[in-house]
Structures are given as structure tokens and as C-alpha cells.
Design a protein around this nucleic acid. Sequence first.
DNA 1: CAGAATCCCCACGGATACTG
DNA 2: CAGTATCCGTGGGGATTCTG
Lengths: 146, 146
Amino acid sequence: MVTSRTLAGPCRAWPEESTFIREVLDRIGDKWTVLVVTTLSDEPLRYSDLQASVPGISQRMLTVTLKALERDGLLTRTAFAEVPPRVVYELTDLGRSLADAVMALAAWAATHHEQVAASRAAHARSGVGREKTRHALARPTGPATS
Amino acid sequence: MVTSRTLAGPCRAWPEESTFIREVLDRIGDKWTVLVVTTLSDEPLRYSDLQASVPGISQRMLTVTLKALERDGLLTRTAFAEVPPRVVYELTDLGRSLADAVMALAAWAATHHEQVAASRAAHARSGVGREKTRHALARPTGPATS
DNA sequence: CAGAATCCCCACGGATACTG
DNA sequence: CAGTATCCGTGGGGATTCTG
């Protein structure tokens, strides 16, 4: 890992690659999308099942999220014309590939969240809200740029 | 890929793993964090350089983002006590590992964004805003659940 | 059951001005 | 240069109500 630095690539002015990143993050950035996608990665579910499987979600956000995901071809919506309506949502191959990518990120989180929590706690212990705790200075006299 | 479905894992009630995912997504969910982290993955930069390298960012958001990342141990802040102040931000190993994970997600985006765009365009062509376009029904008579 | 529609709040974030 | 402090607009999203 940690190969990105050694790339020394010309990422300078954010040519256009960042557009793709934003496109994905705008989609999975909100919590509901992630929860819905990962939940559906297990198996297809109907509306009410999803609402049950994703604890805090409101009907509104569930509907909005599902529509957006359908629009982007990440899942399919199948409605059955039965007397009590039944609608099943299932990830497409595209959706599952995204789910895998998200899982990879989740793996990172599971691996490193302790370090993050530790660092967060350390900063909390040093002054955060209390008092005007000035940032510590490195190399008081400074080496001067060049 | 697409292994997540075959897991058939007990993700049911989102035990606690989702917490980690959220923790990460809450961090990289906003556009600025991603842009800052990926920008710094190339090389350490000072405040003004970052502001220049990340086009649309305001001082406020740059500061807020940097503080959050420092708090989480993803980057280090080094201030030099010179007459014109100089502060350099550099990713930690932890930060670089996150950057790599984000890059992986970017790779997914670069690979699949066309499919997403296509699907999005297709949905735009079928009725979205115009008229009340009812959803098509699958299997009009329905097979009944079981 | 599966949504659509409406109201409404507040936190995220931009713009601006000031400071060490 | 490298921030901090303040004001304020916008829209994301929850709660509620109604429909096919």
C-alpha cells in the first residue's frame, strides 16, 4: 500500500479524474445509499423489507435513494400487479460491483478505525474546546525555505 | 468481483460493521476531504498551495477539512515560526492508506461512469419530469409469493 | 403495501471581514 | 501567510398526511 505518493503523477489542477470520484461519492456519500446498497448485496428485497433492514430510514429517503439508484442502473425495480402491491429491488451487476468497492472501503474502515479513534481521543485530551491552546510550533527558528 | 452476493452473510440488522463504514464515509463523504486528501497524496503542501490546488475551496472549508483530517490522524500539520508564517500539511501513513482506498473507488468510477451516465440518460429519455409516466409492471398477473 | 406530496427545520457551507 | 469569527442563504432530509 501507500503507493499513491510514489506515483508523483501530474494530478495538479484536477484534470477530470476528480469528476469521476465526485460522481461516485455524490452517490454513495449519503449514508442511506450505502446502507441500502450493502443490504441489497445480500439478496433482493422488497420495499417494506428494506425499510425494516435499514433501521433509521424514512419512507421519503428510502424512495428517493431507490429512485436514484435505479436511475443510475445500480438496481432494478420490479413491480408485481397483485392486490397487495409487491415491489422487489435487486442490485444489477453494476450495482454489485459498486457494492464490492464499498465493501473494500468498509474493510479499510474496519482495519483502521481504531487508529482514527485513538488519534481523535488524543486530540480531545489536548485542548480542544477549553482555553486558547495555541498550536505547537516546529523548529522555532525555522530552516528557511532555501 | 461481485462476490458480495455469494457471501450470503448475516448482515441482517447492521450489527456494527456499518458503523465503521459510516465513520469513513462521514469523513470522505464531502467533496473537499476527497480533493484535499488526493491532492496531498502527491506531495506535502502548504496552506496557500492547497487553496490553489483545490480550485473552488474557501478558506473556511479548507481549514475545517484540514483540522478534521489532523484530528483523525490522517495528516500532520507543521508550522514554522518564520516571519511570513509557513505551515505544511502532509499525509500520514494512515492518511495515505485511506488515499489509496479512495483511489480504488476512483478506479471503479473511471471504469463504470459511462454505464452510469448511459443509464441516467436512458431514464431521462423515458418520462421523468414530463407527464405522469406510470411505472411499467412486470408479470401483470403475478406469480404470488409462494 | 408502496409510494407521492407537503411542510419545515437546521446544519453545511459560501462570502466577507478581522487578526497574529 | 495562515488562519479565525460572524453572518446568512440553501437544500438535505425528517415527520406527517394522503393515494392507487
